[in-house]
Amino acid sequence: MNPFRILGDLSHLASILVLIFNIKSTNTIEGISIKTQVLYVLVFLTRYLDLFSFRLVSFYNTIMKLFFISSSIYVVVLLQRSKTTQAVAYKTMLLTDTFKVQYILLGTLIAAFVINHKFTFVEIAWSFSVWLESVAILPQLFMLSKSGKSKSLTVHYIFALGLYRTLYIPNWIWRYHTEGVIDKIALAAGIIQTLVYSDFFYLYYKKVIKRSALNLP
């Protein structure tokens, strides 16, 4: 375990907590893409199948997996529940959340069958999950770019999520130098995901800097 990976996992944890806090505290789902959240549930369900094999890697690894699965499902439940509690916002979300996830699902499924560590169900599912995670944020970024504005909490959510996978890259470099091992599929998908976030990072950086620039006397 190295500091990059710990910080990365904590950033991932923080992003989900920010999202849940965002929905519960502001009691609005405005600007949140339910498609991205459903994709994340799929990412965790297909990646953590080894929970059923009871070959637990470590206590930390297991509780984090259980947390990610349960919290991502909880977010989707919260968003679905807003169908009754805030019907207008829910309808608006469906109208603005228009990214064609079929293309993501088909593309990542093909990638999983073509590029995997072993042609077994668990490994293809794992590979599908890694490829899917690298593009799962697209509906959310698409919605954000269309609406042009968003609550700051949503922006912080995306930033923390992007930071998590970006931190995994130095983690992989660290592990390569200390343990001599590297997972090429995870590395490739992680680089793609970081690139997907890069334009968002640029916007976020400008927005934050611009705001602080404005604050200067």
């Binding site: 690894n61 997996k65 077994t120 794992w126 995870a186």
Partner: peptide, 10 residues
């Protein structure tokens, strides 16, 4: 020997 790959990262 059990040849399943162990992914130790989240």
């Amino acid at each position: 020997v059990d040849s399943t790959i162990v992914h130790d990262e989240l």
